[in-house]
Write a protein that binds this DNA or RNA. Structure first.
Length: 855
RNA sequence: GCCGAGGUGGCGGAAUUGGCAGACGCGUGCGACUCAAAAUCGCAUGGGGUAACCCCUCGUGUGGGUUCGACUCCCACCCUCGGCACCA
C-alpha cells in the first residue's frame, strides 16, 4: 500500500494538510502511517467513475436486445433539496441488482430521468420569484452530478426530462389519441379548492380535508375539467393483476382502490311524474325493507322532486352542504343530517309511496347518487331513520336462531315480511328479486366501482398545456398533431389568482381555430404530473425519436420492464395510471403488451435516527453527502444493503455505517496479505492444509450460492452477511495454515470470487481490487461465479439428538450413514444414554438434520 | 369500522413444504499489540439458576390447541405500522 500522507484522512473526517496539523504524526514510522491510511476512498470513486465514462462501459447495446434486461427505478423529482438517502436506497440497490444481472450476461438497460413538471417547483417559484424552469434545470444539474457520484450504471444517452418540449410533445400526443378514442372528455365536476392559496389542489395535496401547504380548510367548487376514462378499464385493470410478480399487498391495494362491487340498479318511479330515480344496492334481498329514498344533495332530480312547501328547506340544505368544509364532510362521526323533499317514489314491487329525502351521507360520485334506505339492515340508514322518526321494519332474520339479529342486522339471513320471497336465503333472494325487477323492466344486475375517472387538468402553470382549442363555432377542437407541441410560454404571471395562469397570457391563449380558422382560444389548463409519469418508461428506450413517441417495433422488444423498483406510496396512483395508459396504447395498437411492469419491488423507507420519517422540519434529515465524503460511495451503498431488510427500511444508525467501512478495510487488508503471500513464492504443498482447504471451498461455494439466490430476490442484507463469512473464512485459513502449506491458487480463486460477489454492492471498490489482483478491466465484464455443488457435500455431518423434542446432544455422522447407523451412533452417545435408559418408544430421523427419541 | 403487513436478544436483523432459534453485524465485557491512544487481532456475549465446569430451566406479542417436535400450522385476543373510510 502506498501511503498518501498528503491526503491522509482519519475517521471524523477532514483533510490533514502538510503543516501544523500533521506534526503529531511525523514521529510515526512508515508502518504506522500505513495502518491509518485507507486505500478505498472517494478518490477511488472518482477514478473509476471517470474510467467508466471514458470507456462507455455502461452504454446499452441495442444489437444485444435479445439479452436485454430492463431495470427501472422510479425517476426522480427534481425538488429544491438534493438527492437524499431514500434515492440512494432506491437507485443504489436497484443498480446493485442490475449489476449482478450484467455479470450474469444480461444486456442491462438502466435509464434515469427527471419527473420535472409539477406543483413543488411552481410553489417554490411563487415563494422565491425564481422561474420554475430555472430552478428545475438547476436542480436537475445538481442531481445529475449527485447521481454520478452514486456510481450507478445509468446510461445518460437515454435520459428523459418531462418538462422538455421533446417529451411533453408526446404527452400531448397521448392525450389527443385518447381524446379521439373517446377516452378523454370534459365535464363539470367538484374540485378541491383552497381559499387561502386561491387555487385548486390535486387530490394528493389534500390531507384529511386540509391544504397540505397552508393547512387551511379545503372546500369543493364546480369547474369544467378534463377526465380520462379509467373506469372503463376497471375490470381489465383488476384481471391483469393476477399474472404480475408484484407484492401481494400492492395488488390488494389496487383491488380495493378499484373497488368492484356487484349489485342491482333499481328504478324507482316518481309518483305523479315521468321522473325515474335509479338506486344502486348490493342488497336487493332487503328491497321490502326500503322505507324511503335518499338522494345526494347535488342529485340533478332534486329540483324537480321538491315541492313548493319544502323548497326553502331543500335549498338551504343544498347550500349548506355545498359550503361544508371538507374536514367536516369526511367525518363519519358526524351526526347524519337531511331534509325531506316533499316528493314520493313508488316501491317497484309493493307500489307503496316512499318519501324522498336528500342527505349528504349519500355521495353523488358513487353509484347513481341515490340509495334506497333500508334502516332495518343498514347502520347508516338506521341512524338516519331513528333521528327523523322513519319506520324500521325487519325483512331479514338470522338463519341460526342463536345469532343476535337485533336491528340493524346487516348480515345475510332468511327473508321475512317480503311477500312471496319469504323463506329464501339472502343470496337466493338477491337473484330472485333482481330477476323479477328485470321482468318488470324496473332494474337489473349491475357493477359499481369505487374508482372514479381520472381528473387530469390543473389550473396551474408548470405542466404540459392541454392541446385543445375552444372555438365558438366549432366547439372543442384538438390541436393538429403536426402543430405539437403546444409550447408552455415562459413569461407568465403564475401567482395564484384562482384561475388558470395560462388564461392571462395573450401570447398563449389566442389561436386560430384549426378547423375554421376563426379566432379562438386555447385551453388554459395543464396536465397533471401523473400523466407525464404514466408513460415515461415507454419513452426511455427511444428517447430521441422526434417522429413518434417511440418506435413500436423496438419498444415491443425492449418492454415490458423486467424489474421496477418504486416506493410503496405509488401503489394506487402512478402504478395504476401507468397500467391504464399501457392498456390504452395496447388497444390503439401502439404496443403489443398489456402490462408494463412484469416484476415489481417496493423499497422500504429509511427513517431518521429518531425512528421518524426524515423531514427538514423535524431536523432529522441524514444527508448522503457527508457519508460519501467521509467513507466513499460504496460504504454508503453497502451499509444500505446490509443494515436493513430491503422492503422494510428502518432508522438510520451511524454505528452501522462504520461497520461496513470496516468490512471494506478488512477485505482490502486481505488483498495486501495475498500480495505478501504471492511474493513468498509458495510451493503450493496443499496436503497439510487439506481440511482447511475443504472448509474454505465449502464457504466459498456456499457464499456464491446464497449471494446469487438472495440478491435475486433483493435480500441484500443476507448477501452481505455471506460475503463477510467468506472474508472471515479467508482470514481463518490464513491464520490456521502455515504459509509454506498454503494453497495459493485456492486463495486466489476464492479472493477473486469474493471480489466478484462484492462488485454489485461496492462497484468502485471492486474495480480497484480487481485491478490490484491483476485482472483486466473491467470487473463488470467478468463472469459471475458459479457454485460448484461438489464442494457443498461434506464427508461428515453434525446432527442434533433430541429426546422428547429437546436437544440433548449433537453427534457427527458420515454423510452417507443410514438411519439405523445414525440411531446406533446416537444411542451410544453418553449424554443421550441418560435420557433413553427407560426404553425408546419411537425414533424419528430427519436426514442431515436431527434424530428424535420418544421415550 | 373495514382491508393489508408485522410483533424474535441491549440494537439492526437471520432462520418458516414444522426439524439444533438468534446467521452476519453493531454494542458491551475481557485479553493481545502499544510508553500511550487510535486502528487491528483473539475470546465471550438471550434471560435465570450454579463458586465453577458439566448441566438444569425459561425463552420468538398474550392465552389456548394440533404434533414425536411449533418463530413456523389452527382458534381467540393484544399492540404497532400502512391503506381505505358514510362506496349503499
Amino acid at each position: 500500500m502506498v501511503p498518501r500522507i498528503w491526503t491522509l484522512r482519519l475517521y471524523g473526517g477532514g483533510f490533514f494538510c502538510v503543516g501544523a496539523a500533521v506534526a503529531p504524526l511525523i514521529q510515526l514510522d512508515y508502518e504506522e502511517v500505513c495502518s491509518v491510511t485507507r486505500g478505498y476512498s472517494r478518490d477511488t470513486d472518482r477514478k473509476w467513475q471517470t474510467r467508466w465514462e471514458d470507456t462507455g462501459l455502461y452504454q446499452f447495446r441495442p444489437e444485444r436486445v435479445d439479452e436485454k434486461l430492463y431495470c427501472l427505478s422510479a425517476f426522480s423529482y427534481p425538488s429544491g433539496s438534493n438527492l437524499h438517502i431514500g434515492h440512494w436506497y432506491n437507485f443504489g440497490l436497484a443498480d446493485s441488482w442490475a449489476r449482478m444481472k450484467r455479470l450474469q450476461g444480461y444486456e442491462v438497460f438502466e435509464p434515469m430521468g427527471f419527473d420535472a413538471f409539477g406543483l413543488p417547483a411552481e410553489n417554490y417559484a411563487i415563494q422565491t420569484g425564481i422561474h420554475p424552469k430555472e430552478s428545475t434545470m438547476k436542480n436537475i444539474e445538481t442531481m445529475r452530478y449527485q447521481l454520478r457520484e452514486m456510481g450507478a450504471m445509468f446510461d445518460w444517452d437515454y435520459e428523459v426530462v418531462t418538462c422538455d418540449p421533446s417529451y411533453y410533445k408526446w404527452t400531448q400526443w397521448l392525450f389527443l389519441q385518447m381524446y379521439r378514442a373517446g377516452l378523454a372528455y370534459r365535464a363539470e365536476a367538484p374540485v378541491n379548492w383552497c381559499p387561502n392559496c386561491m387555487t385548486v389542489l390535486a387530490n394528493e395535496q389534500v390531507v384529511d380535508g386540509r391544504c397540505e401547504r397552508c393547512d387551511g380548510d379545503v372546500s369543493h367548487r364546480n369547474m369544467t375539467q378534463w377526465f380520462l376514462r379509467i373506469t372503463e378499464y376497471a375490470d381489465r385493470l383488476l384481471e391483469g393483476l393476477d399474472d404480475l410478480d408484484w407484492p401481494e399487498r400492492t395488488k390488494v391495494l389496487q383491488t380495493n382502490w378499484i373497488g368492484r362491487s356487484e349489485g342491482t340498479m333499481i328504478r324507482f318511479r316518481v309518483a305523479g311524474s315521468d321522473e325515474v330515480i335509479d338506486a344502486f344496492t348490493t342488497r336487493a334481498d332487503t328491497l321490502f325493507g326500503a322505507t324511503y329514498l335518499v338522494l345526494a344533495p347535488e342529485h340533478p332530480a332534486v329540483g324537480r322532486l321538491t315541492t313548493d312547501e319544502h323548497a326553502d328547506d331543500v335549498q338551504a340544505y343544498r347550500e349548506q352542504s355545498a359550503a361544508a368544509r371538507e374536514v367536516d364532510r369526511l367525518s363519519t362521526e358526524r351526526e347524519k343530517t337531511g331534509v325531506f323533499t316533499g316528493g314520493y317514489a313508488r316501491h317497484p314491487l309493493t307500489g307503496e309511496a316512499l318519501p324522498v329525502w336528500i342527505a349528504d351521507y349519500v355521495l353523488m360520485s358513487y353509484g347513481s347518487g341515490a340509495i334506497m334506505a333500508v334502516p332495518g339492515h343498514d347502520e347508516r340508514d338506521y341512524e338516519f331513520a331513528k333521528k327523523y322518526d322513519l319506520p324500521v321494519p325487519r325483512v331479514i332474520a338470522a338463519e341460526d336462531p342463536d345469532t343476535d339479529d337485533a336491528l340493524p342486522f346487516t348480515g345475510d339471513g332468511v327473508l321475512v315480511n317480503s311477500d312471496r320471497f319469504d323463506g329464501m336465503d339472502s343470496a337466493g333472494a338477491r337473484r330472485a328479486i333482481t330477476g323479477q325487477l328485470r321482468d318488470l323492466d324496473l332494474g337489473d344486475e349491475t357493477v359499481s366501482y369505487r374508482l372514479r375517472d381520472w381528473l387530469v387538468s390543473r389550473q396551474r402553470y408548470w405542466g404540459p398545456p392541454v392541446p385543445v382549442i375552444h372555438c365558438e363555432g366549432c366547439g372543442t377542437v384538438p390541436v393538429p398533431e403536426e402543430d405539437l407541441p403546444v409550447r408552455l410560454p415562459y413569461d407568465v404571471d403564475f401567482t395564484p389568482k384562482g384561475k388558470a395562469p395560462l388564461a392571462s397570457s395573450a401570447e398563449f391563449i389566442d389561436a386560430p381555430c384549426p378547423s375554421c380558422g376563426e379566432p379562438a382560444r386555447r385551453d388554459a389548463n395543464t396536465l397533471d404530473t401523473f400523466v407525464d409519469s404514466s408513460w415515461y418508461f415507454l419513452r426511455y428506450p427511444d428517447n430521441r425519436n422526434d417522429e413518434q413517441p417511440f418506435d413500436s417495433g423496438f419498444i415491443n422488444r425492449m418492454l415490458p420492464v423486467d424489474k421496477y423498483v418504486v416506493g410503496p406510496e405509488h401503489a394506487t396512483m402512478h402504478l395504476l395510471y401507468a397500467r391504464f395508459i399501457t392498456l390504452v396504447l395496447y388497444d390503439l395498437g401502439y404496443v403489443d403488451f398489456e402490462e408494463p411492469f412484469t416484476s415489481l419491488t417496493h423499497q422500504g423507507i429509511i427513517l431518521g435516527p429518531d425512528g421518524r420519517r426524515m423531514s427538514k422540519s423535524r431536523g432529522n434529515v441524514v444527508s448522503p453527502d457527508e457519508y460519501i465524503e467521509q467513507h466513499g460511495s460504496d460504504v454508503l451503498r453497502l451499509y444500505l444493503a446490509f443494515g436493513f431488510k430491503y422492503t422494510e427500511g428502518g432508522a438510520w444508525e451511524d454505528e452501522g455505517i462504520r461497520a461496513t467501512s470496516r468490512f471494506l478495510d478488512r477485505v482490502e487488508r486481505w488483498i495486501d496479505r495475498l500480495d505478501e503471500l504471492r511474493r513468498e513464492n509458495l510451493t503450493g504443498e496443499t496436503g497439510a492444509a487439506g481440511d482447511h482447504a475443504v472448509q474454505l471451498q465449502y464457504q466459498r461455494h456456499y457464499s456464491i450460492r446464497k449471494v446469487t439466490e438472495d440478491a435475486e430476490i433483493l435480500h441484500f442484507n443476507t448477501c452481505i452477511a455471506r460475503m463477510m463469512e467468506l472474508a472471515n473464512a479467508l482470514y481463518r485459513y490464513d491464520s490456521e495454515v502455515d504459509d509454506d502449506n498454503a494453497d495459493l491458487s485456492l486463495l486466489e480463486d476464492a479472493t477473486r470470487d469474493l471480489i466478484l460477489l462484492m462488485a454489485p454492492f461496492a462497484p468502485h471498490f471492486a474495480e480497484e481490487m480487481w485491478q490490484r489482483l491483476g485482472h483486466p478491466y473491467s470487473v463488470f465484464d467478468a463472469e459471475w461465479p458459479q457454485c460448484q455443488e461438489e464442494h457443498l457435500v461434506r464427508p461428515e455431518i453434525e446432527m442434533a439428538v433430541q429426546v422428547n423434542g429437546k436437544v440433548r446432544s449433537t453427534i457427527n455422522v458420515p454423510s452417507d450413514a443410514s438411519e439405523e447407523e445414525i440411531q446406533k451412533i446416537a444411542e451410544e452417545d453418553e449424554r443421550v444414554q441418560r435420557y433413553i435408559a427407560d426404553g425408546i418408544r419411537k425414533v424419528i430421523v430427519v436426514p442431515e438434520n436431527l434424530i428424535n427419541f420418544v421415550v
